[in-house]
């Protein structure tokens, strides 16, 4: 497996409250994840699964609460926190004009993580070698998702944040993803996946439903009537 860099650590989030567009999403949410552990975010649409991932990635600043890595608030050094994360959003971040391989390479080199051997292994694992020289615009939705996943797998970042990773994937690709997650965890890596289907994250995975942490007031601090 790819060497993880920087080293895995303990991720904690305490008493997080988020409102989006004046709409309270969740409040009082806490979680903790150590090396080799996995967490599944479940729950209905609009419950805040993607929002939890964005808060942990520091893309979104919560109204209340803090995310910490080994006890240090991630907001103290956002760049260092970014380097711990491989993020798979609901969009694949592929450019139609670039080939599958170039897409993965350019984004990884922007993050200073371009490693040809690791990318080869990831493309093998997700059965992408035959597609690697095709423009991403020619690929199907499932194939595009696999390219985006290959970028995460090849990154060598300790913390994977996966937002509905299985969308568009066939059964073979889902089990390839499960193998990748198992390998990542075995190397000490951490995974948080928002998913509403039965994706096997491996033994000892925890489940969290952000929708269960609801606000008791509106964002002005006044009672909801």
């Amino acid at each position: 497996m790819t060497e993880l860099s920087p080293a895995p650590g303990r991720l904690t989030a305490t008493d997080i409250a988020v409102a989006r567009g004046g709409r309270p999403v969740f409040a009082g949410l806490s979680l903790s994840l150590g090396p080799g552990e996995a967490l599944r975010l479940a729950g209905p649409n609009g419950g805040g699964k993607s929002t939890v991932l964005r808060v942990i990635a520091d893309l979104l600043t919560p109204l209340k609460g803090a995310v910490r890595w080994n006890g240090t608030a991630t907001s103290e050094d956002p760049s260092a926190h970014s380097r711990r994360i491989a993020y798979l959003g609901h969009a694949d971040a592929l450019k139609s004009a670039l080939t599958a391989r170039e897409n993965a390479e350019t984004m990884l080199s922007v993050a200073g993580r371009n490693n040809g051997a690791a990318l080869d292994r990831a493309f093998d694992l997700l059965d992408l070698q035959r597609l690697s020289d095709l423009p991403a615009g020619w690929l199907s939705a499932g194939q595009r998702r696999r390219v985006a996943l290959a970028r995460v797998v090849a990154s060598g970042a300790p913390l994977w944040l996966l937002d509905e990773p299985t969308v568009g994937l066939d059964a073979a690709s889902v089990s390839a993803l499960e193998r990748a997650i198992a390998g990542h965890r075995a190397a000490g890596g951490m995974v948080i996946a928002a998913t509403h289907i039965a994706l096997d994250l491996g033994p000892g995975d925890a489940t969290l439903d952000p929708g269960a942490f609801s606000w008791t007031t509106d964002v002005f601090g006044e009672a909801l009537v």
């Binding site: 990635a57 956002p78 970014s82 993020y87 969009a91 971040a93 450019k95 984004m107 922007v110 993050a111």
Partner: peptide
Amino acid sequence: SEDGGLEQLALSGLP
């Protein structure tokens, strides 16, 4: 922003 690339760029570690 539409294709998700902006989030990836923001998480590249570059301020």
